[in-house]
Computed example of a mutant assay.
Amino acid sequence: MWLMLLKNKQFWGTVIAILLLAWCLKDIRLSAVQSLCERVSYIYVIPTLISAFLFMATRAVRWRYLISQQKVLGWLRAIGLYSAGQTLNVIMPMLTGQVGRVILFSRKEGLRKTFVFSTIVLEVLFDALSLLVFLMLTSLAFAFPSEYRSVSYIIGTVTLLLLAALYIILHYQQRLEDTTQRWWRDNRPSLYVGIRKFIRSFTKGIKLLRSSRNLGAQLCLSLLSWFFHALTIYLLFNAFGFT
């Protein structure tokens, strides 16, 4: 029985999850938790949980829509899988969480890693566009300090460059493949095959950029998710009396 248990992947997954949870909680003192529980306004707790769930759900729906051209997931499956990916993104340092998400989504749904990577690139793009929209709307009511304005200019420039790069890849896919063929097909055939597969798989993930309707839907979902994110933070501040 113990031998079978040791060979069970779910068992080791549970052990790792418990160890990670213990590591995350190691610096938390029970007295501090008790103090927070005493000051919390529980009238905000349920709205906060609902808002946090809606934030995750809208992002999961957005990702479900991004991969729908390759595979259609159920709503609950998409939300559960995306939530697991976000957990990896939070607990893993720097950008390794994104790598973990790519591997998780690829293995669980049988998708090519390059395709999954392209959907994450699109997520970053739409998040950046949403941030720019919020900055523009906020600037109508508040005057940003000069240092924050420069940050918004940088974000806007990087976003436009990323968008332009994706459109170039989409519209000049065949030229890119022809170029790699001339450079590496004879000298390095294995490298050529790998690059060609990467280009084709990546472009499959960003094809929705060809449709203004798809762009609008993705941007609306992104804006909605960030609205719920901001609402969650606002409710948390009220719950703990920080306002």
Score class of each variant (00 low, 15 high):
144 F>S: 10
65 Y>D: 06
119 T>K: 12
19 L>H: 04
60 A>I: 03
176 L>E: 07
168 I>A: 11
42 Y>D: 02
63 W>Q: 01
74 G>I: 01
2 W>Y: 02
57 A>Y: 06
169 I>S: 14
23 W>V: 08
76 L>H: 10
1 M>L: 14
212 S>R: 14
94 M>H: 05
75 W>G: 14
204 K>P: 12
34 Q>R: 07
169 I>D: 11
173 Q>I: 13
41 S>N: 11
189 P>S: 12
95 L>E: 05
4 M>S: 11
170 L>N: 13
18 I>R: 06
158 V>H: 04
126 F>L: 08
20 L>E: 06
183 W>S: 02
35 S>V: 13
100 G>E: 10
209 L>Q: 02
69 Q>N: 15
14 T>I: 08
106 S>A: 15
64 R>W: 01
145 P>V: 05
72 V>K: 14
23 W>H: 13
143 A>W: 11
121 V>S: 05
110 G>S: 14
134 F>V: 11
83 S>V: 03
238 N>T: 07
16 I>H: 08
102 V>N: 00
72 V>G: 04
141 A>C: 11
156 G>F: 13
194 G>F: 15
216 G>P: 04
172 Y>A: 10
181 Q>W: 11
106 S>V: 12
222 S>P: 03
183 W>I: 13
17 A>I: 12
73 L>Y: 05
217 A>P: 10
195 I>G: 14
107 R>I: 01
192 Y>R: 09
79 I>G: 03
143 A>V: 15
222 S>T: 02
41 S>D: 14
56 M>I: 10
13 G>K: 15
160 L>I: 08
59 R>H: 14
166 L>I: 06
34 Q>S: 09
146 S>K: 10
68 S>P: 06
188 R>S: 08
196 R>D: 07
34 Q>V: 13
184 W>S: 02
5 L>K: 01
198 F>S: 11
161 L>V: 12
120 I>G: 00
187 N>P: 04
26 K>I: 04
93 P>E: 00
39 R>H: 14
16 I>P: 14
70 Q>H: 15
43 I>V: 03
75 W>N: 09
105 F>K: 05
230 A>T: 15
211 S>I: 12
108 K>W: 12
51 S>A: 10
20 L>C: 09
161 L>F: 15
78 A>N: 02
126 F>H: 07
100 G>A: 08
91 I>G: 00
46 I>N: 01
